[in-house]
Design a protein around this nucleic acid. Structure first.
Lengths: 144, 144
DNA sequence: CAATCTTACTTGCATATTGCAAGTGAAAAA
DNA sequence: TTTTTCACTTGCAATATGCAAGTAAGATTG
């Protein structure tokens, strides 16, 4: 089983461009923050996040992130209405990107959430490890 | 003189949200890549980059990046038509963000530009230092 | 077991952003 | 003096975003 899909049509082959095409919008990274840092896993949790994403946009972004293999979805076994969103290994690997974006903004802008910032400043590696641990239980083998 | 401006109205105070509001679109990070990695400094150079940005969008993004203090502009002394764009310290500090985005895409997607990828894999710190060196001469003291 | 509530969406429509093609004006080059 | 270059701007069509109000399926309540 191949670890990478054949390249979709991109504006260029540059790896930064690939990242930007997948993540370069006003919501995707915030959804990933909610999963990675806050442990959110359901549609309603994302909806109620501080930035107030519209439900149609949220549905669209979740679909896109899944199509890129960054998140996975499954139905909740004990509640047939609920959909559980989870990070794939590819999604977990975005932790360093999120970390650097947080540290950059914390250095150059006035921001809140200093607890998170200090956690990241204290140890980027430790943060990555904690994200991996948080999501370790949810890895489904088929995800890539 | 304060090092940070008072907070503009944001959707939330989260540092990741601040980064996303400044950089979360399909072009800003590519322009910064062109400056940081390729040494581009003029409008026409950005225009001719692989991804083919439209000139009106480019003008808008350059204005935005300058308004955030990420880049600076000056007229070329020897050619009155030319405008020279440069990275500020704040812009240079985005090198780790770019690095992690490049490494993430290189790991999970099919991409080109493997020379750059290997350079970044070989040493993130060294890359940051090289960006700083490249732009050291262009620091104007008033930039923040 | 019928009514109500929750959950994860979808739909319709107004507004904003993006992208393309074709200018424009000032400065340099021929 | 004409042409070219440079950094944009303008007009307009296409696309994306955002808001408010649904909706369908499953769970809970009386």
């Amino acid at each position: 089983m191949p670890r990478k899909k054949p390249p979709p049509k991109r504006r260029s082959g540059c790896p930064l461009n690939a990242s930007v095409e997948m993540l370069g919008d006003r919501w995707s990274l915030l959804i990933l923050r909610d999963m990675m840092i806050r442990g959110y896993r359901s549609f309603n949790e994302f909806l109620q996040s501080d930035e107030k994403i519209a439900s149609n946009i949220l549905a669209d972004r979740l679909r896109r992130l899944e199509s890129y293999g960054i998140i996975g979805t499954e139905r909740d076994a004990s509640d047939g209405r609920k959909v559980i969103y989870s990070l794939t290994a590819k999604g977990i690997d975005l932790a360093p990107v999120l970390t650097e974006m947080v540290l950059w903004a914390a250095r150059h802008e006035v921001t809140e959430n200093q607890a998170l910032v200090r956690q990241m400043q204290a140890g980027k590696e430790r943060f990555l490890v904690s994200v991996r641990e948080k999501w370790a239980e949810k890895q489904d083998p088929g995800a890539e």
